[in-house]
């Protein structure tokens, strides 16, 4: 009697888990270190906008340029799913993760290119996109 509802529940859960694993798998794969496209992620000095993200299973190491010097912080990484969408969350923001085709202008020729787009939080109409490459 309950077989069919349980079957659908199981399928739903597996879709949920697989979508989350996909986003996390993309980011944690290949060492998990990503830098913002068009900006530097190395060197002693840095300029505004330079940043790198190192994704691990449960946390993200964020390295950002603040006032010409690198500043590191560790944020807890989690996953989310709502209204048929899924993604990751860290640093107080929820992101949708999308692997982009290398031909996309924003990728600037990078073969491995990922876009993190913030989910509207209801406070502002602006969303933010971060383009990352490995």
């Amino acid at each position: 009697m309950f077989r069919i509802p349980f079957l659908f529940l199981g399928i739903g859960i597996s879709f949920f888990v697989s979508a989350q694993q996909e986003a996390l798998g993309t980011l944690t794969g290949g060492g998990g270190q990503w830098s913002v496209i068009g900006n530097s992620a190395a060197g002693a000095t840095c300029t505004a906008g330079d940043a790198s993200y190192t994704f691990q299973a449960k946390e993200v190491l964020v390295k950002q340029c603040v006032g010409g010097a690198w500043k590191s912080s560790t944020e807890t990484l989690s996953s989310w799913m709502a209204n048929g969408k899924s993604g990751i969350a860290f640093g107080g923001a929820k992101y949708e993760v999308k692997s982009l085709p290398a031909g996309a202008p924003a990728c600037k020729g990078s073969a491995t290119c990922v876009r993190l787009t913030t989910v509207p939080d209801g406070k502002t109409d602006a969303t933010r996109s971060i383009y990352l490459t490995q």
């Binding site: 982009l100 202008p105 924003a106």
Partner: peptide, 10 residues
Amino acid sequence: DMARFYRRGE
């Protein structure tokens, strides 16, 4: 946002 992404070929 999606319309912009589509326009940019993303």
